[in-house]
């Protein structure tokens, strides 16, 4: 345990390239349309705002345990990892490439609030194209896995993209949702959602509640090595079932869940309804201990 603690490198603190290098085999990453091509956003430039040479997203090829994969990582610190025309096109191109070249998997390190408002229409269409391309890669038999553990989480359209993935790896620090707490508070009032109550925000959208509901496949600690381990575990599992029968089953499960938790307004409500011991203390557990409790509850 102590050796692990010494070598731990935070995913949350890392930038997009550091995350990719932490995920894939050493020296295996080769970037496509990288920063030297200077594909910067003309839409930010028109507004006299700073641009980035990679438009806030890194895409390319690598290997994971020797298997060829494609990988993309959003730069949460650049405009909230938001999706503009070029940013979205790079991710869409990556997934089209997956459809055509059939790697073992695509890994998407998501860190994004969704559409970039400065180029909102381009961003919305881009996310729709990304959704179709992701579904196209899956239909071609290439599993797509998402990884969420950065400061922006996965919200807006990228929250939908995240859930289109075949599996999701999250840390407790990662958040997954559609509308950010600030948006809900602004429109519906602080009584509906107090965005400054950080513990509440994490109980509504954080990795632990997402793992509990089955929205996240794996919960891992905030550590590059743990995310890499999670990605290897998902690759080893193989792609989940698809097709009409699988979607019928998902439909029934989602409907049952909605009914069971119809009155829930806090992660605590869900943990209590599931009969988990000491619901209040779940927030304190590390990923391994938490996963064991959820696994037990799922098999019970």
């Amino acid at each position: 345990m102590s050796a692990h603690a010494i070598t731990r490198r935070s995913w949350f603190e890392a930038d997009a390239r550091t995350r990719i290098h932490g995920l894939v085999d050493a020296g295996s990453f080769s970037e496509l349309c990288g920063p030297h091509e200077r594909l910067t956003s003309p839409h930010l430039a028109v507004l006299d705002l700073p641009v980035a040479f990679d438009d806030g997203v890194v895409v390319g090829e690598a290997t994971l345990d020797g298997e060829r994969i494609l990988v993309g990582a959003q730069q949460g610190e650049f405009n909230g990892g938001s999706v503009g025309e070029i940013h979205g096109a790079k991710l869409r191109g990556l997934l089209d490439r997956a459809r055509d070249t059939r790697p073992a998997a695509v890994l998407l390190a998501i860190d994004s609030g969704g559409v970039r408002l400065h180029e909102a229409n381009a961003g919305l269409i881009a996310i729709s194209e990304l959704m179709r391309a992701l579904l196209g890669a899956r239909a071609a038999g290439v599993p797509v896995y998402g990884l969420i553990g950065g400061s922006c989480g996965a919200f807006g359209g990228m929250g939908i993209v995240a859930r289109l993935c075949d599996g999701l790896i999250m840390s407790e620090e990662g958040r997954l949702g559609l509308s950010g707490p600030e948006v809900i508070e602004t429109v519906k009032g602080v009584d509906e959602f107090d965005s400054k109550d950080r513990a509440l925000v994490w109980r509504i959208t954080g990795g632990k509640i997402r793992r509990t509901l089955g929205e996240a496949t794996l919960l891992v600690d905030d550590d590059l090595g743990a995310f890499r381990g999670g990605a290897k575990a998902l690759l080893a599992r193989g792609a989940p079932l698809r097709g009409l029968a699988a979607l019928d089953a998902d439909q029934a499960a989602l409907a049952a869940r909605a009914q069971r938790h119809a009155d829930a307004r806090d992660g605590l409500d869900i943990w209590r309804a599931l009969g988990l011991p000491d619901a209040e203390r779940l927030a304190m557990l590390d990923a391994d201990a938490f996963n064991r409790i959820i696994d037990r509850a799922e098999t019970a």
């Binding site: 993209v161 859930r163 707490p181 509504i204 439909q251 869940r257 909605a258 829930a264 992660g267």
Partner: peptide
């Protein structure tokens, strides 16, 4: 949000 509305949209 708690129920992960984006998961329903993705479905």
């Amino acid at each position: 949000e708690l129920m992960c509305l984006n998961g329903y949209f993705a479905h």
